[in-house]
């Protein structure tokens, strides 16, 4: 479904940082991949490259066989198939919860009003926040906001969901409700790439864990093998620090 071939990315501002160095990977349809790694290891950059929020300098990413760095590719159609959830939620503060979930359906999917309404309410119910449909984002708790953000991404009927540290900005008691939604999604067979440190989530639903450090994929494997029997010293050190 997603094929990443030897991508490189360097940031020059404020100083030169090699964010991605020769990263390759293949993500199959229906797979749940968890990316972990220390801060600055390039895991977010990797995720953001998948829908071209960042452009790689070299290399190629194929999404459903479409080269997304090709200037001829209409990136908006590719992005519409990939939902993204951010660490800081990024809900539109000038729209209600309902408006947040509806807007892209109208602008990008060109759905009719009735269809949009049904979809929106269905999704808000799914993430357990239908009662707050008319509320403003600023009146919601972090966990509620993040669930709305997930509903907003799902409204496009994406084939792939990208999660960029969805629980890192949440108070501890709210992490559970967001993970619950993510687990449901994973069990429904959604293809997911999650940058997250939630080990419980990784153990329960991930098919594969990728460990990144200094812009490179150091190790990958099933959660059982990864957490219980890591092969690299760097991985061992990291796991020791976070556990």
């Amino acid at each position: 479904m997603i094929e990443v071939n030897h991508i490189y990315k360097t940031f020059y501002v404020p100083h030169e940082v090699k964010a991605l160095v020769d990263v390759s990977n293949k993500i199959e349809a229906g797979e749940v991949v968890v990316v972990i790694g220390p801060s600055g290891s390039g895991k977010s950059t990797f995720l953001r490259c998948l829908n071209r929020l960042e452009t790689a300098e070299h290399g190629q990413i194929l999404v459903d066989g479409v080269d997304i760095f090709d200037p001829k590719t209409d990136i908006n159609t590719v992005r519409a198939e990939m939902g993204m959830v951010f660490q800081s939620f990024n809900l539109y503060p000038h729209l209600t919860v309902h408006g947040n979930v509806t807007l892209a359906q109208k602008l990008v999917r060109k759905r009719h009003k009735k269809e949009r309404e049904e979809k929106t309410m269905m999704l808000l119910e799914k993430v357990g926040i239908a009662a707050k449909a008319k509320a403003w984002p600023s009146n919601l708790s972090g966990g509620q906001q993040q669930r709305v953000a997930i509903a907003r991404a799902l409204a496009m009927d994406p084939k792939i969901m990208l999660f960029d540290e969805p629980t890192s900005a949440l108070d501890p008691e709210m992490i559970g409700e967001v993970l619950e939604v993510m687990k449901t999604l994973a069990k429904e067979g959604m293809t997911m790439v999650c940058v997250t440190h939630e080990m419980g989530f990784a153990r329960e639903v991930a098919d594969r864990v990728i460990f990144m450090d200094e812009g490179m994929i150091v190790e990958e494997g099933t959660p059982e093998k990864f957490y219980q029997n890591p092969s690299h010293d760097r991985t061992k050190l990291f796991l020791k620090q976070i556990l």
């Binding site: 829908n51 951010f86 800081s88 990024n90 892209a104 602008l107 990008v108 907003r152």
Partner: peptide
């Protein structure tokens, strides 16, 4: 906030 642009663009808006 740039996150607003990212949220909008990542949902396929031009």
């Amino acid at each position: 906030h740039p996150g607003q642009v990212e949220a909008a663009r990542s949902s396929g808006m031009n």
